[in-house]
Design a protein around this nucleic acid. Structure first.
Lengths: 346, 346
DNA sequence: CTGAAAGCGCTAACAG
DNA sequence: CTGTTAGCGCTTTCAG
């Protein structure tokens, strides 16, 4: 192979390395003819600069890290797509890391981001994340961090989220409006330090409807398909089973549908279901799944854009933005439109 | 921030840079006490070596590139998950690049992989890919390339695929067996240079059933949701509409279901549907979607493992492997089991 | 066992 | 306009 480098080009052309370097970067202090000959030879020899030598010297990697809990989820897939698109366009490279919802992994990964490998970090935190010291450390190293979707309450950084409070409120109110009296919010494990505006919106709507908000109304599903299945099956088999479910993430909709099938529960008439989900399958399910659809691709694009903007400034801490995008309640048959008189109680 | 580096550690300890470096890499030529003091200080100051300086020197990046056409697809999501898992375990970093099915983008991306940025490449080629010169070039630079799922016919490289021929054959035979006379294979655009064993298996099964294999039996869907919808709607509205469909990728199942709903076509009784898909939604659709399920996560893991193995050897070209994993025909109601006498023909 | 020194390939300041 | 030079932070001989 004998990698072609500046030295080779310089020797070949009888120029100095510095001159060749400048010519390639189209410096104004190089004559047009020299540039042309350099460019020609570079193309002929298929020259491609060594990015790490350049990074080392310029202290800039043109690389960002995307850290997410999971990739087999349509929200995160679409977000990655948005991020990658913007990055490709701006000439950045995207390193991807999965935490599998483990704080320990998340920490280890961030450890690896603060030594110059990346210029910035986009993160959606794991469910286990209970501290922000790992984020702080990154910021102390002047690495900008932008949160998207899953953010931490107290962190000082740009955040791109959706209107979780409002949409959960709206979805819950919708169920109340359809006559549901016993609404359960299906969550994934305990989110100790994560913003949980979804739950807050849920509670607010229940409170307004005077539906007693006891602890049974939040059901935590373990981070494991089999136990989640058991948990939901138990929930739907009980005496006092819910007549409305709000599922906090996409992957919870599937067991709900499957279990209703098994137990002979009619979704829509006996149980209304709403899910935070961006999946295209929602429309072809029977009954169609009512979703709170987040603009996942858009979130990715904006998060990347905000990060790149802060990379341009030297001071990482300057302009913190918190952008909240609207999500959309897409009503389908699993929790259909229905204008019941809202006082049919007793 | 004042990045802590070897120089700082060395000064602090009154040692030379070289000694500190060796101590950190646990070299046998350093005394135990020295190692201990170095390690202690390194931990205390939170030292983390600059990966690019190291890469530059060692000519090794500990980074691989994953190049795929699309990420919003359960197959690719799961494959990435498998790749990332193995990479994380082996201390490698994963750069992700999307081609959006464009050969031009694919070429540009590979261009960026041959200058030392990555040690190896995992790729699933775009549908437009019509030449392998971009791959050749990478290999000339001694960068090992491993193909997964979507491979090129003539390329000399390791490939991890599934038994596309057999599974398409089996799926087609299954439809024939159910009495389908007019089976259409829904493909995505023309795949000129890509292996297309799926189509070959499809044709073989049709030929064996003496179902005339005219050109109408392969329908190409454009790389665009709206036109795909139109194409399929036209297909299912025609006089001579199919009674069986084999969809080559996950995303084609959704418009098929949606359009059947619109047109009042009963999937299962009037139209049998099989799809190459790994989606978990298959089981909760009504009717349940019969799928050819590829071991996507496994493919990712194996592809990464094969790549890492070839990185260990100096000679990239040595041990080419072609691993073919079985996929599974999961029969559900969209194309149910049914033992018709197979000779009801005329 | 430790130190000195030469670079990996590139950039950028400074001279000429 | 072009060349020289001094590193970026690390690894790795080779001496001592």
């Amino acid at each position: 192979m004998s990698q072609v480098n500046l030295q080779l080009l310089a020797k070949e052309l009888g120029l100095s390395i510095g001159t060749v370097s400048k010519a390639l970067r189209d410096s104004h202090e190089i004559s047009i003819e020299t540039k042309k000959s350099v460019l020609d030879l570079a193309k002929k020899l298929n020259y491609s600069p060594n990015p790490y030598a350049s990074s080392l010297r310029r202290k800039r990697s043109n690389t960002i890290a995307v850290i997410i809990p999971e990739v087999a989820d349509s929200f995160f897939s679409l977000a990655i797509k948005g991020i990658e698109e913007v990055a490709q366009q701006k000439g950045y490279h995207v390193l991807i890391y999965l935490t599998y919802e483990s704080y320990e992994k998340e920490q280890k990964i961030l450890e690896d981001c603060k030594n110059g490998r990346v210029d910035g970090v986009l993160i959606s935190v794991s469910i286990e994340t209970t501290s922000l010291s790992h984020i702080d450390e990154l910021q102390e190293h002047n690495i900008p961090v932008v949160f998207f979707d899953r953010t931490l309450e107290k962190v000082t950084a740009s955040k791109i989220t959706t209107d979780d409070f409002d949409s959960a409120y709206k979805a819950t109110a919708h169920l109340v409006n359809c006559g549901c009296k016993n609404i359960v919010y299906l969550s994934i494990a305990d989110m100790l330090f994560m913003n949980n505006n979804r739950i807050a919106g849920f509670r607010k709507a229940l409170a307004e409807a005077n539906l007693n908000d006891d602890t049974k109304q939040i059901v935590n599903c373990p981070n494991n398909a089999a136990s989640t299945y058991t948990t939901i099956k138990h929930l739907l088999s009980g005496e006092d089973k819910p007549d409305g479910i709000i599922a906090s993430v996409e992957k919870l909709a599937i067991p709900v549908y499957a279990i209703c099938d098994e137990l002979g529960i009619q979704i829509s008439s006996q149980l209304k279901v709403v899910c935070f989900s961006t999946t295209a399958y929602a429309q072809i399910l029977k009954p169609g799944l009512t979703t709170i659809t987040q603009p996942a691709n858009e979130i990715g694009k904006i998060a990347a854009t905000v990060l790149f903007k802060s990379l341009r400034k030297a001071s990482a801490s300057a302009d913190i933005e918190h952008i909240v995008l609207p999500s959309e309640l897409q009503i389908r048959e699993s929790a259909p439109e229905c204008s019941l008189p809202s006082n049919t109680a007793d």
